[in-house]
Each structure stands twice: as structure tokens, then as C-alpha cells.
Design a binder for these strands. Sequence first.
DNA 1: TACGTCCTCCTTTTT
DNA 2: GGAGGACGTA
Length: 743
Amino acid sequence: MSLLDSLNPEQLAAVTLPRESALILAGAGSGKTKVLTARIAWLIQTGQVGPNGVLAVTFTNKASKEMLHRISTMLPINTRSMWVGTFHGLCNRMLRAHWKEAGLPQAFQILDMQDQLSAIKRMYKVLGIDAEKFPPKQLSYFVGSAKDQGLRPKDVEAHDEYHRMMVRLYEAYEAQCQREGVVDFAELLLRSFELLGANPTLREHYQARFKYILVDEFQDTNSLQYNWLKRLAGPQGCIFAVGDDDQSIYAFRGARVANMVQFENDFNVQNRIKLEQNYRSVGNVLKAANVLIAHNKARLGKELWTEAGEGEAIRVYEATSDQDEAAFIIDRIKKLVLEEGYSRSDIAILYRSNAQSRVVEQALFNAGMPYRVYGGLRFFERAEIKHALAYLRLMDNADDDNSFSRVVNFPARGIGARSVEQLQDISTAQATSLYRAIHRMEGRAQAGLKKFADLIERMRFETRGLSLPDLVDKVINESGLIAHFQADKDGEDRVENLKELVNAAASFSIAEGYYRDAAATMVDEEKLITPLADFLSHASLEAGDNAAAAGQDAIQLMTAHSAKGLEFKCVFVTGLEEGLFPHENSIGNSVEGGDGTSVEAVEEERRLMYVAITRAREQLFLSHAQQRMLHGQIRYHLRSRFLDELPEEVLKWLTPKRAHIASQGWDALDSKVWGQNKTLNVGYSNKTSKRPYDIGTGVSHAKFGSGVVVSYEGEGDDQRIQINFGRQGMKWLMLSLAKLERS
DNA sequence: TACGTCCTCCTTTTT
DNA sequence: GGAGGACGTA
């Protein structure tokens, strides 16, 4: 059986397990995806289950597509009806098939984070709640984390007045979503979970159908996802969970590593297989990763090994500034591409936060190197695309107040805030949508709104019978979006993007088979929805970046988070500075470990660093900068602790490694910095303030040790000084009290 | 009342 | 560096 030939004994054991639940602890680069895919193929090929009896959950849409593709090359089956996807994608599918039972409209819409926030803000206005006191962002976080645990408002414990208010808001938010027929990301999961709970027939149907459930990246499941799986599997269920506790990087969104242990207990797991051989990286990279992650206390324990050679040493570069760091990267990439024969797509540049990409992008652009940024502003999140989608949504469902508010006056058509406010009042009073409220309006404000409603109606009428791409094309023109951006001298890119949306619709139609029979548009097994509604939900769940620039040989830019699950021959990990990576919010904080224990938040950052390092197959470059422009302000960071935690023997410092802060020669830096810009010192403007240490100076403090002066604020006796103490974190100290010494 | 411009505020990671 | 709010003008 050729399918199994390329597997090692451990992998083979995992792939060919009998029908029992199993936990596979798979290290980075140990062939996780391969094992998952091979198991599915093996199960089907040996006739143990049909393609429809398998449910596989992956972490990204990209991963599921890849998996389906691989299966289809191995087996002569139609993979289109297979249930392989993300939690959100699968729950969406289930809810679309059972919208009635789930209490949703047939064409419900999915709110992304941005939409969610604006929905919340509108609700605040209606309820007259002080947004200062109860920040909408916090509500959105509150709602999200409650739902991640499977909690509805009635189930949330409210300890104090603040919590009680939050619960009240949560309740109101839910009522509003219900009224508008929209769901947010978390709601998708929760609805599906509740649907399975409330409807035994349906539950038993799915339990009988999915004889085998496979889960990738199991360490990143939250409680709700875990319970969803449990409910779906049922008493006879068989779950094959693959994960790596060292790669758990989504605690901020409720991921619970403890699920792994709970899974073993709940399902009486007899098979725990460890995959520790790494097929991805050279020895030096692996050694660095092993030593780094050993600094974490909370681990199940695993040691990766490889048969590959040591490979190149890991190169470390200390840049003087973020610009210098980018220049170093460009320089190295040129060598890799021109002298060492790598293609550009073999090379990835990773960073901790999206904002860091800009400097590198600029440098790549100036050097004429094609690049591609993942994440950040995704295609479907761009303002112009969201506007176009909002028009499409309104045509599909006029009661969608979110979309209505977005485009009612975009492009500007003389409908001001006042008119919308009046409309809002009417819709609240009559408990109807904004769109319907138009007809009940009176006075001059109505004229403009009426015209807008007519526009939507006209577009709906005129696009009847058109194919999806033609429909989209018609709408971006009729709505005036194209004209608006064409008139804008900076709008060229936006026009391009809008045209790209037509292409995206076209490729979606082809992928989903809507072209095969344009007349019979309601098709496909469980999919009883129009192509438009289908496309809209697709837009909410997919980043949509596969359409753009596919096939281009380009340098890959992404956050360490988005790099999970991917691999590249050459990897640059940038911005290795205290406060950035590890991120300042994590330094000195503890988080609940999921089983009642307290874990340092930095451990998650370290896992993230571990993920970043282990993306590299052959060459790894690490860099940090002495000063960096952040939030429009120059900041000085110490070298990341992670660099010091790596084993010295696998590193090669391209710049001299400095012992520590005291000997860093800050004098030279001072003159450089102050020579360029005399106004660096934010918050300092008054003559009663003094500045005994220049920004960027190294100082030492009896308790916190050595650090770097970052900024000042206040004046006189209240004047405070901000110092980056590296490991001890960023501190604000009263200048008059703190005993500081120049170091 | 509508719209453009200036200013201020905030600033992790994502399906 | 960007988004949203405040303000001034048509």
C-alpha cells in the first residue's frame, strides 16, 4: 500500500490505529498534517468509513484546503462533500443546513470583529449607555470570552456592579443580533453547540454519521470547541486528536492546553503516541528550539530530534534601528536569492505584531522585491470591500442594520447623521429594521433615504438572473463606489481592489460549482441558499488572500501567529526585543493555566518564539534593533531574553554580542539620536521639568537593576520617568523619589 | 444640516 | 500611523 510507505514506525502506528480515541503528541515538523491526512485516506481506502463519515477539524482554511487536495490526489473520490474545515467553517455549514432548527434566518450574516464593534456601538446609543464607563471593546471581549466557555448571559456570574452591567449589555447585544439575524464568530460555535444539545434527532444523526473525528492543533481548542467535539462524538465517538502543547499560542482567545489531559480522561484514551522525530529543520535550528522551550515550566515534555545534519549556524544581528534591521534583511535576502539559489517564496519574514511589517515592506518595495503580506489588512477587511459587501448584504437582507449604517451615506448622498439618528429612533420605537423604518418616516429627511432604498431595490431587480461575478460588477458600479474612488486621487488601489472582488466572486463560483448550471442556483446537498448568500458567508470566514497574488514568487511576510503550521527554507525572526517579543503586556503577568494553576504569561510568548523558530528548515536569522519607531514614537528596547536563552554554540553573532546594557555604549547612540531629532522627549515641555538622563541612557536602580530611559512625563515634583528594565518590565518612577544611577 | 479638515487618542496575537 | 471625534464652514 503505497500510501503508507513513506511513514516512519510511529507515524504508521498512529495512522493505522483501530477505532479508538487517541492523542497524538506531535512536535513541530514531525509530519502532523501528513499523519492526519494519511489516516483519513487510509480509513476510506480500507473501507472502514465512507468520505462522508469523517469529520476533520483544522486550524485554518488553508490547512483544510491543502488536506482535501492531498486526499483527492491519493484517492479517486469526490472530496467536495467531505466535512473538512475549521471549527467556524463547519459550524457555519451545520447552521446553514439547519437554520430553522437553530432559530436563524435562512441567510444569516456573520459579523467580523469590526462589524461586531460597530453593532455594539449602535446599541450603546439606543440604550443610552456611557461608552466611557463601559468601553465597547471591553464588552466585545467580555462577550467573546463568555461564549468561548459556552456561557449565555444568564449563565455568567456577575460579582459586582461592573459585571452586572456587562451581563446586561451582553443580553441586549444578543437580543439585537437575534433581531438582525446576524451572528458573530463565537456565536457560530455556540449556536451549533446548543443546536446539538437541544435537538436529539439531529445530534444522533451526526453522531451516527461521523464515525471518525479528527482534530488538528488540539492544544488551541477552547472549552466550547472541546465540548462541541464531545457532544458531536457522542458516547460511541472516536476522536483522533493531534496537538503540541509547546505550540499553544492562542490562550488569549480561550485556548486551553488542559483540554489534552481532560480529553484523555473523558475518552479513556489508551493510545498516547509521541512523534518526536523532526523532518523539517536542520540540527542547529532544532537544538535552539529545544533549549528555548525547556525554559518553560508548564509542559508535557517532548524532545525533538532529527537525522538531518547541523546545517548553518543561526545568524543573529543587532541593528541600530528598525530601518537598519530592514536593510540587513534585504541584504541577506539578496544573497539568498542571487548567490544561494533560493526562490523568494522560500523566504519568510516573521514579526510579533502586524504594525512591524510596514518598515520592512517599505524596504522591500524600494529594493524592488516582490513580497506578500499575510494577515494585517486582509482583502475582505479593506474598507472598500466591506462597503461593496454591505451593498450586497443589503440586497440579500435589507434588515441588516450593520450594512445599512455602513453604506447609507457612502458614497456621500446627502444623508447626514441627523437623518440617520431620526431613522434610528423610529426603528427603535417600532421595533423594526432601519431599512423598513424609512417608509414610516416623514419630513424632508425622508427624500434622501427613500432614494437610497430605491437604489437598493433597483439593484436587486436589475441583477436578477445574473451570475455572481456579473452581479458584483453591477453593484460596485451602480452603487457609485467605483465612481467615488475614481474621483479620489488616492483611490486607484481601491478601484483595483473592487475589481478584484469581481474576480474573487468568479473564482468562488467556479470553486463552488455555481457555473455548471447557472439556472439552478439553489443546489448542493445541504446548501439550500443563494450563491450570493453563500459568497457573503465565505467572505466572512475567509481571509480571501488566496485570490490575490497567487503563484507570485514573493517574499512572505506575516506575524508569528499566522506562520503556525507553515514552513519555509529561510526564516527571519525580527524585532526580538523586550517589550515587543516578548510583548510588554505579557511581561510580569501571570495567567490562569486552565487547571487552576498560575503560569507566567511570558511562557506563551516563548511558545510563540518556539513556533517562529521551528518554521525554518535550513536557515534562520534573528534580529533586534536598539531603537524602533513604534506608535509614532521612538522607543528603546533591550535585547529579548529569548536571544539569551538560546544555546550559544548554535549561534553566530554578526554584530558583536554585548554583555549587557551597562556596556552598550549608549553615549554614541545618544549623540546619534539627539543629533537627528531634538524633540524626541515626549511629555517634556515645561521649564520646571528637568531631564537628568537623556532618553536612551542606561541607568540602574537598586531594585529593578539596569534599564534604559524611555520617556518623561509631568513636571516639578510630579515628574515621572519611564524606564525599560527589560526582564522587570517597563516602569514609571517618580523622578524625585527614585534613586537612579547612570550605568 | 452636511461635509471636509484637523487633531487627538490608542496602539498583540485571530477564526 | 490610522481611525474616529470635534470643530468650522458652506
